[in-house]
């Protein structure tokens, strides 16, 4: 292959890797918004805690990749449920602003709690033997393949759960109408807990994969990644699951391509200007539907 094609294929692969991690986190934002119309700003920090769970499982317990991933997802899911029960449930009928401030507070708590326990950046040992294949000049690492396919797999499972199972139907029902759904015998609290568990579990999976791809983790790692995942969710149409995935891949792609075309200093500036324009053209995001307020 010619050098130019190799170069672009390589950049596309980079974009897919970045996009799949954003997508896994963006799903958590979008699911919680969909069901509670609340932005869970602590979600980026749940992702960070996921990376630390991965660190603990890999070093203290000495587990290999698959059990580490499962344990991290379970741990993060549990954390998500606990946060919802302790911090958000008491505020479910309070003004949205109170819930958002609480979420920010929970995020700060998680950051500083981790900081108090682990002030030094931690190194994640390589859980998988990394093989780099050279396909006609394009370097493909086994890690990249695992991240992209595992993320896609998890997204397909989630899409199935939400659109094809009773639990998913209940989720969609609650997001449609919170007042009358309990009258139909749907256990609202349980469904909300499940939503948080799934969202946080996916953030845990993202934390594990992120920690493997970028194996130096610190308590502040969730802030910027969290914001970018949130932006992905908004671009895709917040509340819409497929939208969040599309938004994440768009953001990952734009970020990589801007750095590839322009001096990389302009990356965030150009990337966010493009996304801003997209929001101006489609205010509800790519797949979002305007919610009609009934008077």
């Amino acid at each position: 292959m010619s050098d130019g094609i190799v170069y672009w294929l390589q950049q596309i692969l980079n974009a897919l890797q970045l996009g799949s991690i954003y997508a896994l986190i963006a799903l958590g934002y979008t699911m919680v918004y969909g069901i509670l119309t609340m932005i869970n700003f602590a979600h980026g920090d749940v992702f960070m805690i996921g990376a630390f769970f991965c660190f603990l499982a890999a070093t203290a317990l000495g587990l290999s990749f698959a059990p580490t991933l499962l344990l991290t997802m379970l741990g993060a899911a549990l954390l998500g449920v606990v946060i919802e029960r302790l911090a958000y449930k008491p505020l479910r009928n309070a003004p949205r602003v109170s819930a958002i401030i609480t979420a920010l507070g929970v995020g700060l708590f998680l950051e500083n709690f981790t900081l108090a326990l682990a002030p030094y950046p931690k190194h994640i040992p390589p859980l998988l033997e990394n093989v780099t294949w050279n396909l006609g000049g394009v370097s493909v690492s086994s890690l990249q393949v695992i991240i992209i396919f595992l993320s896609l797999g998890l997204m397909i499972v989630l899409d199935y759960v939400v659109h094809r199972t009773p639990v998913g139907m209940a989720m969609r029902a609650i997001s449609w109408d919170k007042t009358f759904v309990p009258l139909m015998g749907i256990p609202v609290n349980l469904i909300i807990s499940i939503t948080f568990a799934i969202g946080a579990g996916l953030a845990g999976a993202a934390g594990t994969m992120y920690a493997l791809a970028y194996p130096v983790i610190d308590p502040y790692m969730g802030i910027m990644v969290g914001w970018k995942a949130f932006i992905s969710a908004v671009v895709g149409g917040i509340g819409n699951i497929r939208g969040a995935m599309i938004g994440a891949f768009i953001l990952g792609g734009v970020e990589i391509m801007v750095a590839a075309f322009f001096p990389s200093t302009y990356r965030d500036f150009v990337a966010f200007t493009l996304l801003l324009l997209l929001i101006v053209i489609r205010p509800y995001g790519i797949l979002g539907q305007p919610r009609i307020q009934k008077v």
Partner: peptide, 19 residues
Amino acid sequence: ETYTTNDKDFSAQLTKIKD
């Protein structure tokens, strides 16, 4: 090539460097 503090993904810049 440049990046900004707290970036973790340098793949785009490194691909440029490789090229």
